[in-house]
């Protein structure tokens, strides 16, 4: 049953994409109505701050970590056995 539902969804990638975009839009609109009286620092006052933080953080983390892995850390899985 679960597998069938997932297969049904996987066959409709465009629908999933629009649902995801709709969710992101909802999250941004929701932020306008959030109660900011208990802010801890300047970022909490900016609408959409955590959206930018999440997107940039995610992209930078992928670029930085994957890059570091490629140029330095990456080894064969039997590196220590050699």
């Amino acid at each position: 049953m679960i597998a069938q539902v997932i297969t049904y969804l996987r066959e409709r990638p465009a629908m999933l994409k629009w649902l995801f975009i709709a969710y992101l839009g909802f999250a941004l609109v929701f932020d306008f109505f959030a109660d900011r009286s208990d802010a801890h620092f300047w970022g909490d006052q900016i609408i959409g701050f955590w959206a930018i933080f999440g997107l940039l953080g995610c992209l930078l983390m992928i670029v930085f970590c994957k890059g570091l892995s490629h140029v330095w850390l990456e080894r064969d899985t039997d590196h220590y056995d050699k």
Partner: peptide
């Protein structure tokens, strides 16, 4: 909502 949604977008 923001952190998770936009991390998903990054992925």
């Amino acid at each position: 909502f923001h952190l998770l949604g936009f991390t998903g977008l990054g992925f």
